[in-house]
Design a protein around this nucleic acid. Structure first.
Lengths: 339, 339
DNA sequence: CTGAAAGCGCTTACAG
DNA sequence: CTGAAAGCGCTTACAG
C-alpha cells in the first residue's frame, strides 16, 4: 500500500504543498473554506504526515522520552510505573505525541541514552524518574539543554522543571494516626537509601518521632522487592522490643511483611499494624486489606506530561506541587493489643 | 548546545558527507583506515545521526511500536506487561531500535493507532498483544502491510508472524498434577473469554477433565482483576459441592482467591489447593507461596522483538513456538484433606 | 576508494 | 490568500 504524501493531498485539492501544510497546522495562509476542503481530502485518502519529514523540517520530534532505571524484576512487580506510564500516555496521545520508552541499567547508561536521544533529535523532552541524592543526571540534562521534568523533589532538581508531592506531610500524618491509635513502637521499612524521596521520608519520620517522643522509632533499609521487605520485617519482628506498627515504602514490601507476620504467628492488626505506601489494587488483594498511603498515579503522570509539553513549548521551568498522598485506613491497622 | 551533524564530522575528517555515511553504516565505499578515523571523530564530538533525517532518507523509522489495549487499572497490577516490555527493550536497544508505546482503549482505537503509525512512518513494525478470537486487528495489519509479530496463538494470526507458547500442554500438565495429588473437583477461574489464549486453555481444560473423568470440572469467567477473581472464588467456594482445587488464569486473581479462601475460614492447601498462571514475584509474596505456571517473560519479549526485527528485515513471517510454561509447586497445593 | 548531487516529505520565510 | 523554492540532515545511486 502506497502511503499518501502531502503532494497527493495538494494535487487532489488543486493547491500547493505549502497550502496543505498551513491547513494541517492550523496556520493562517489559507481560507477557511480551502482549509476544510484540504482536511476533508486528507482524511478521505487516509493521509498522516510523515513524522520523520516533520521532525526534520520543523525540528520537533513529536515524541517524549522516558528512561526507566530499575532492574527488570523490580520494574515488573511494582504497579507504580505502569500506572504512571498510562497517565503520561493518556496526556501525550491526546496531543498526538508519542512516548519513547527505554529501560536502562544505571544512571550512567541513562545519561548516555539522553545524550543519544538529544543527538538523534529523537525526543523533544524527557521525564526523569527516581530522583537521587546528588543526582548526576541533573547537570547532564542541564548541559544538554534537553527539556525535562523531574518527577521528584522538592530539592535536588537544579534548574530543571519538577513535579513533586509532599511525602513528608503524608508520612507525618501516618505516624500521627498510628500514635493516635496507641502505637509507641513504630518502625519503617524504607526503599533504596540513595533515592531522594527515601531521604525526605526518612527525615520526616525522624522529625515526627522526635516530636512525639517515640524513642523506639527505627528505620531499616530495603530495595523495594518483596524478598528484602520480608527479610527486613522478619528482623524487626524478631527483635526483643519489636514494633507494634510498621510503615513500608511501597506496597510490595508491605504485602511481603504481612505474609511474614502471619508466618510468624502474629495477627494483623492485633499484634502488628501495617501501612503501605502506594495504594495499588494489590493492597486490597490480601487479607486483611492494607491501610495505605495513596494518590492518583495516572493523574500524576498526566500532570508531568502536561508540564513537560509546556517546557518543550518554551515556558519557564517551574516547580509544581502535585496532590499530597492521603491515608486510606483499612483492615491492617488498629490499636495495639496490650501484651 | 549545537548538535553536530554529519557535515561537521565530514569537515573535521576532511571527507565528503557521503563518506561519513558509508563509514557509519559499515558499508563499502571507504577504506578501513578512513572509516576508523571517521568513527573516532564522530565519537569525539558526540555525534549521533538525526533519527528524523535517517528515517526520511532511508525509509526506516528505527523504532517499533507496542499498543497496549487494557484498562489502566488492569495494566498496572499485572506484572506481565512490564516484564514483557523489559525483555523487548533489552533486545531493541542492543540493536539501537527505540520502543514506541501507546495505551489504547479498545481494538478499534488500536487499529487507528496502527494506521496512523503506518501513515506517519513512525514505526517499522509492531508487536501485537492479547490476541482475540476473530481478531479484527489481524486483517487490518495485513492490509496495511505493516510488519508485525503477534504474541499469541496458535491459530487466528492470519498471514502474520507469530510467537506462541503451548498453554494447552501447560494446563493439561497442571490438571494431571492435581489429579495425581488426589483432587477430583477442580475449578478454573478464567480470564477474559474473548482472548484467544483463554479459549485455548478452556478447550484444553475441558479435554483433560473429560479424559480423566472429572465430571465436576467447572470454568468461571473473570477479567483478570483481583476484585473479579475474588468474587469468582467466593462463588465457587459457596457452592454445595465446592472444588478442592482452583486454577487461576493469572497471579493477581490467584492471590485474591487465596485471600477469599482464608477469609472464609478455609485452609490453603488443606481445604483448597491454588495454582496461579504467570509466576511473578507476587506468587512468593503471599503465605503460603503459590504454586504457579511460569516461564521467562522477558525472554519471551526479547524473542518477539528479535522475530519482529527479522520480519522488518524482510524475512518470511513464521510461526515460532516459545518455551512451554512449567509448573513450580509451592505451598499452595497439596492432597485434599478428606472431609 | 571518493565526491557531487538528487531526493526523502515536510515546513517556512519570501514574493506575488 | 496563494505559489515557488530553499532547507532540515541524512542516504544512495552515479560518475570519476
Amino acid at each position: 500500500m502506497k502511503r499518501p504524501t502531502i503532494a497527493d493531498v495538494a494535487q487532489r485539492a488543486g493547491v500547493s504543498k505549502g497550502a496543505v501544510s498551513y491547513a494541517l497546522n492550523g496556520q493562517p495562509g489559507v481560507s477557511e473554506a480551502t482549509r476544510q476542503r484540504i482536511l476533508a481530502i486528507a482524511t478521505e485518502i487516509g493521509f498522516s504526515r510523515s513524522s520523520a519529514a516533520r521532525a526534520l523540517s520543523a525540528a520537533t520530534a513529536g515524541a517524549i522520552g522516558l528512561a526507566l532505571c530499575r532492574p527488570a524484576r523490580t520494574l515488573g512487580v511494582e504497579p507504580f510505573f505502569m500506572a504512571l506510564i498510562s497517565g503520561v500516555e493518556a496526556e501525550l496521545s491526546s496531543r498526538s505525541y508519542a512516548l519513547t520508552l527505554q529501560v536502562v541499567a544505571d544512571p550512567d547508561a541513562e545519561i548516555a541514552v539522553y545524550r543519544r536521544w538529544w543527538g538523534e533529535r529523537r525526543v523533544d523532552g524527557v521525564l526523569v524518574c527516581d530522583l537521587r541524592t546528588d543526582d548526576s543526571r541533573i547537570p547532564a540534562l542541564e548541559q544538554l539543554q534537553l527539556p525535562a521534568v523531574v518527577i521528584g523533589g522538592p530539592g535536588g532538581t537544579g534548574e530543571l522543571a519538577s513535579l513533586w508531592s509532599d511525602d513528608a506531610a503524608a508520612l507525618t500524618e501516618t505516624v500521627e494516626y498510628l500514635v493516635a491509635l496507641g502505637h509507641r513502637r513504630i518502625a519503617r521499612v524504607a526503599g533504596l537509601p540513595d533515592l531522594r524521596h527515601t531521604e525526605i521520608r526518612t527525615e520526616a519520620f525522624a522529625a515526627v518521632c522526635r516530636r512525639l517522643g517515640l524513642v523506639d522509632a527505627v528505620t531499616v533499609w530495603s530495595d523495594y522487592t518483596g524478598e528484602e521487605g520480608g527479610r527486613a520485617t522478619r528482623r524487626l519482628l524478631s527483635s526483643a522490643n519489636r514494633p507494634t506498627a510498621v510503615v513500608y515504602d511501597n506496597d510490595v514490601m508491605a504485602i511481603a511483611g504481612l505474609s511474614v507476620a502471619q508466618e510468624m504467628g502474629l495477627t494483623v492488626p492485633g499484634d502488628l499494624s501495617i501501612v503501605a505506601w502506594d495504594d495499588s489494587p494489590l493492597c486490597r488483594l490480601v487479607h486483611p486489606p492494607l491501610t495505605a498511603l495513596g494518590r492518583d498515579i495516572p493523574a500524576y503522570g498526566a500532570h508531568a506530561a502536561r508540564q513537560l509539553l509546556a517546557v518543550v513549548a518554551g515556558q519557564p521551568a517551574g516547580r509544581v506541587q502535585d496532590e499530597t498522598p492521603h491515608l486510606t485506613p483499612r483492615g491492617s491497622t488498629a490499636p495495639p493489643r496490650v501484651r
